Amino acid sequence: MIFLKFSKFSFFFCLSTLVFTTSCVTKKKYDDLNSQLSQVSSDAANTKRSLKLAQAQQAKLEEELGKLTEANLKLISDSTDTGIALRKIKGLYTDLTKTYDNLIKNHEKLMSNSAAESSRLSSDLARREAELKALDANLKASKQQIDKLSVDLKTREERLNELERVLAEKDKAVDALRSKVSNALLGFKDKDLTVNVKNGKVYVSLAEQLLFKSGSTKVDPKGQEALQKLAKALQGQDDVNVLVEGHTDDVPVAKITGIQDNWDLSVLRATEITRILTKAGLDAAKVTPSGRGQTAPVEVGKTAEIRQKNRRTEIILTPKLDELFQILETN
């Protein structure tokens, strides 16, 4: 670049000298010199542009050189890390090789014993498969049994519900019957006549003094009135059976014609009451006389009061339980 500047200066210096020293220059030479001067100026401008371009390329190359230098340093660092990692990998490879060799040895040892072990395992597997089949069969049988029990349970629940319904209706009917009989016999004293419910039945207990004189089998007028009212209350109760039980105390009966003992007396009294009830309108097929004698006392004792309580007639009213028995029979 210094050389170019010097040459250009020298050229202009020489030209000026030539012009000033030569007082008379031909036009042709002058034109040639101008042409050369223009050419030199153009070459100088081109050279200047090339120089700037070269400088720009030099700056770019220097920048790229810096980047390459930095990348080279990084590669050197990565190479160091890679070398460390490679050495570790080589160590691991050596360990893995040793482990592999040990595994091969153990495998060969296991293979030498595998025949017996395989036979044992096959035997165990066959045995377990047989057990599994047996368990599966038992499971299916149990499931069938459970299904059957579920159906039976559902059927029993339905029967139980039906039974509870029938029992509830029976209890309701018994309560209604007791109320009806009690209302029909309201005019009698409690000591002569009581109406109670026991074991799903209505018990009408009539004391001896209301019905009979001592040792007699004929019902007094007051007793006949009570029996007729009872018969009237029971009319239309086709689903009620009537049991007439005669009871005596433990004192032997006096020698009366036709009466041998307390058995006879209780039976004859029950029969007489049955006759009055049926004449008053009850169906004879639904009324049953029974004599218990002294075998079913209300209280045990020898006092006059206890013996008086035991001398009684009990009329037991039992609602028919055909529907209930039918449900029970199906169970």
Rank of each mutant, 00 (worst) to 15 (best):
K74H: 06
D190F: 00
T274P: 11
E323C: 01
S41W: 01
T313Q: 08
L317W: 01
Q294S: 01
K309Q: 05
F188P: 04
S114Y: 13
L211I: 05
N183M: 04
K286N: 15
E169D: 15
A231Y: 03
V181D: 09
I327E: 01
T318N: 14
Y93Q: 13
A280I: 06
N310D: 07
P319K: 09
L125A: 12
Q237Y: 06
T99C: 14
A285H: 10
L243T: 00
N161R: 05
S122H: 03
A173Y: 00
R159H: 09
K28P: 07
G66W: 11
R307S: 07
Y30S: 08
E62C: 15
A254K: 14
L277P: 05
R165Y: 06
A141G: 04
N46I: 08
V166H: 03
K8Q: 07
A226I: 00
D220G: 13
V166T: 14
V204W: 00
M1S: 12
L185G: 11
Q326H: 08
V219T: 00
R165M: 05
L37I: 11
S142E: 15
E131N: 01
N196M: 12
I2W: 07
V287G: 00
G236Q: 04
E64R: 03
L324Y: 15
A173L: 02
K279V: 08
T80W: 09
K88N: 06
T22S: 09
S77Q: 14
L321C: 11
N310L: 00
M111Y: 03
V151P: 09
E157G: 11
I89P: 02
V202T: 03
D283V: 15
L92V: 11
D190G: 09
V25M: 07
L206T: 06
G236S: 02
T99D: 01
E305N: 07
S114A: 12
L282C: 02
R128F: 00
T248P: 10
N46E: 01
K229H: 12
T318P: 13
Q308M: 04
K133L: 03
M1T: 15
V287R: 00
K48C: 12
R275W: 14
T94E: 13
V287H: 00
E323S: 06
N106Y: 14
T313G: 10
T313W: 02
L96F: 14
Q57M: 07
L15R: 14
D32P: 03
V300M: 06
L186N: 09
T248W: 04
K154M: 02
K140A: 11
E208G: 03
A296T: 12
L265Y: 05
L282G: 07
I259Q: 00
R87K: 13
Q235K: 12
Q237S: 15
A168Q: 05
A141W: 01
L73E: 08
A56L: 06
K67R: 09
E329V: 09
E162C: 08
R87E: 08
K309P: 05
D136W: 09
S23W: 01
D43Y: 12
